[in-house]
């Protein structure tokens, strides 16, 4: 808006629908010449994005071919939905889908509850130096790689001198150390809690900022009315950060299937494959690892399509119920 009002001579072509008259075309080229630097500064990167982000989408055609790397695109043999049929009948696929959905839903819930709780708790701390100290420490794990984080988690859960086993034995809950990393049914929980350990402090930043934006007069009024601290949290803080929660929720639901595979790759081992194999690892192992590129691509497509469909569905539901939208 501001640019249009300040420079009247350069009316942008996209504001009012450009008609294809010779005049408007002339005006376009004149502005084009005036803005040559802007074009020079953006078009090379647009080509860049095309190559590295859009060309892989072209690669989706592989899923409908019997792709052979040595052949050109026109020499490939087309097989229709054959790979998808194989995929949907594969037990490993169903297993991977189950694991992906389970770990992403657990991650989604934990990734909301813990940061919100932590932000609220931090906000209630009166000693400002301790508040700052706690916050600084809490971001720390976000910045270390998953390689390091997985190493630390494995160390803490190990049977020889792992902290968790030591504490549990010390408190008398168990008599034998538990082999955490070797138990399939514990894997989802371990991945989720590792994520909580690594990301809670970081994800709390947004909520803290949202809480800081709530007017102090609301709290004062509540105090005058005799509301306890818990009631103030329930009736002022939580409603105050509601819009933030909704926006972040929509974004994370869209990424439900794109949970990545780093954690599962690094924390998993052969003993827990039935619980650690997510869709991306499945495509890595049975697609890339076996040079079945077409089959692997079919897995990736399934993943992307479902993610986008979820995003639009959830956004639609929210739009209808809360009149707030992200897209």
């Amino acid at each position: 808006m501001k640019a249009a009002t300040i420079i009247p001579d350069s009316t942008p072509g996209n504001r009012e629908k450009p008609q294809k008259t010779p005049q408007s075309r002339k005006r376009f080229w004149r502005t084009f010449k005036n803005q040559k630097y802007l074009y020079l500064m953006s078009l090379p990167f647009v080509i860049w994005v095309f190559v590295f982000s859009y060309l892989p989408l072209w690669g989706w055609t592989m899923a409908f071919q019997k792709y052979k790397p040595a052949r050109s695109f026109f020499e490939q043999e087309w097989v229709g939905f054959e790979h998808f049929k194989t995929l949907f009948h594969d037990d490993q696929f169903l297993l991977s889908l189950r694991n992906t959905l389970a770990m992403s839903s657990m991650g989604l819930i934990a990734g909301f509850v813990f940061p919100i709780l932590f932000a609220i708790l931090l906000n209630e701390i009166r000693l400002s130096f301790f508040k700052r100290f706690a916050q600084t420490i809490s971001y720390l794990p976000h910045f270390v790689s998953w390689v390091v984080a997985a190493g630390i988690v494995t160390k803490m859960l190990s049977t020889d001198n792992g902290l968790v086993n030591d504490v549990l034995m010390g408190l008398g809950f168990i008599h034998q150390p538990i082999q955490f990393m070797a138990q399939g049914h514990l894997f989802w929980g371990i991945v989720t809690l590792s994520d909580v350990w690594k990301e809670t402090g970081w994800n709390a930043i947004i909520y803290l900022a949202a809480i800081a934006g709530i007017g102090p007069e609301l709290y004062e009024a509540a105090r005058v009315d005799g509301a306890s601290r818990l009631r103030q949290i329930w009736h002022i803080t939580l409603p105050g950060i509601r819009p933030t929660i909704i926006v972040l929720l929509i974004m994370s639901v869209g990424n439900l299937l794109n949970i990545g595979f780093e954690k599962q790759f690094l924390l998993g081992n052969n003993l827990v494959t039935d619980y650690s194999q997510v869709l991306d690892l499945y495509s890595l192992k049975y697609g890339l690892g076996m040079a079945r590129y077409s089959f692997g691509t079919a897995i990736n497509i399934f993943n992307s399509v479902i993610s986008v469909a979820l995003l639009f569905t959830i956004n639609g539901i929210f739009k209808r119920t809360t009149k707030e939208s992200l897209l």
Partner: peptide
């Protein structure tokens, strides 16, 4: 705001945040 290619460039970029080709492609 006066840049003619603005809308195209930002949409072109924004789309990459939602759709990705995936591991194997």
């Amino acid at each position: 705001e006066d840049f003619q290619g603005r809308k195209f460039v930002s949409t072109f970029l924004a789309l990459t945040m939602y759709v990705s080709g995936g591991l194997i492609p």
